[in-house]
């Protein structure tokens, strides 16, 4: 089976995020600057994209959130996806406030069984022992 496109390294902004997935932790950053008015940082960056601060803290998400929106891919030419059948790509709003791209899985019919606003929880798609895992979501 052809592997999905993998995160590639060296890429120092996102490497800590993917390293954390080896421990099955979904992590996000917050800005350490007390004056920063929008402390949440996601996708990962070594700086705060609200205030430009260079000190950030990594936090672990509980992995609970809601579907902000989704689309069901009926046609993908990518070898890793083309035989998958219809699959849902989604933006999920985590309860901690960050929004991530992901897949919503473990549903029979992604068009009908997923709804915007639906509660979902984190599920890991394993890719091999000691490897990174892909954070995905399923109905909570």
């Amino acid at each position: 089976m052809t592997l999905r496109p993998q995160p590639r390294f060296p890429e120092p902004d996102t490497e800590p995020f993917w390293e954390a997935t080896k421990e099955r932790n979904l992590v996000y950053q917050t800005c350490d600057n007390p004056d920063c008015t929008d402390k949440l940082i996601f996708y990962p960056r070594a700086h705060c994209n609200s205030c430009g601060g260079l000190k950030t803290t990594w936090n672990t998400s509980k992995g609970e959130g809601v579907v902000y929106t989704y689309s069901v891919v009926m046609q993908s030419r990518h070898p890793a996806f083309k035989d998958l059948g219809p699959y849902a790509v989604a933006y999920v709003d985590l309860d901690e406030g960050f929004r991530m791209m992901t897949n919503v899985i473990n549903v029979d019919n992604p068009i009908d069984d997923i709804q915007i606003g639906m509660k979902v929880k984190l599920v890991w798609q394993e890719q091999g022992e000691g490897e990174i895992a892909l954070p995905m979501f399923e109905p909570a």
Partner: peptide, 10 residues
Amino acid sequence: NNMEDPWGMT
């Protein structure tokens, strides 16, 4: 790429 590609968004 690292935060988008693995989920197969076309």
